[in-house]
């Protein structure tokens, strides 16, 4: 023992040294540093989890937004279609009513025209008759007496009138 240099006092001293070192290092190195590492790891884990959550949420939001957009687009399209359809209908209605109106006007105009023509014809006949009687008066006055003259004229006129009426009807 003596030759190896083993001395109980020295041994004890080294033992105490070591115990002191264990105590100091534990209190001021291991515990705080390990605690710090653990806390930081926890924080990082939490941060990563949060980031992951945010990612998922963002994805959700994106999908939601897209869905809303799609829906809005669809609805817009629908509204446009609806109004187009309605427009077409209105257009058709307008065209139809315009056609009908035009037709009505045409018919009415035709009827009016016909009436006008009838009237003109009657006027013309009357005038013709007047002119004829006046001509006959002037031409025949010299030949016939007033009495005969009148009788003849009346007869002739009646005859003419009859003929004319028949003739105008046949003409139509």
């Amino acid at each position: 023992m003596e030759k190896l240099g083993i001395q109980p006092v020295m041994l004890l001293m080294q033992l105490i040294n070591f115990v002191i070192l264990v105590a100091v290092l534990t209190k001021f190195l291991y515990k705080p540093v390990l605690k710090l590492i653990d806390e930081r790891r926890k924080k990082i884990e939490e941060g990563l989890a949060l980031a992951e959550k945010m990612k998922v949420k963002e994805e959700e939001l994106r999908k939601e937004r897209e869905a809303v957009l799609d829906k809005a687009k669809d609805e817009g399209q629908k509204i446009i279609e609806e109004y187009k359809e309605r427009g077409r209908k209105v257009e058709a209605d307008i065209v139809k009513s315009a056609n009908e109106e035009a037709k009505g006007i045409k018919e009415k105009t035709a009827i009016e025209l016909e009436q006008e023509r009838e009237k003109i014809w009657q006027d013309l006949e009357k005038q013709m008759l007047g002119v004829a009687s006046a001509m006959a008066k002037t031409v025949v006055a010299d030949i016939l007496t007033d009495k005969n003259q009148l009788l003849l004229i009346d007869k002739k006129l009646e005859k003419l009138e009859k003929e004319n009426q028949g003739g105008s009807k046949a003409k139509r």
Binding site: L21, V24, L25, F28, L29, Y30, P32, V33, L34, L36, I37, E39, R40
Partner: peptide, 29 residues
């Protein structure tokens, strides 16, 4: 030497480690 190093590290412990603290943390961890 070790005790002084320990106190030096302990006094300078930060949430965000510097280079030296990173080495110490590497050793301890």
């Amino acid at each position: 030497f070790l005790v002084m190093l320990t106190f030096f590290v302990f006094a300078g412990l930060k949430e965000v480690p510097g280079r030296f603290q990173a080495v110490v943390e590497g050793v301890v961890g």
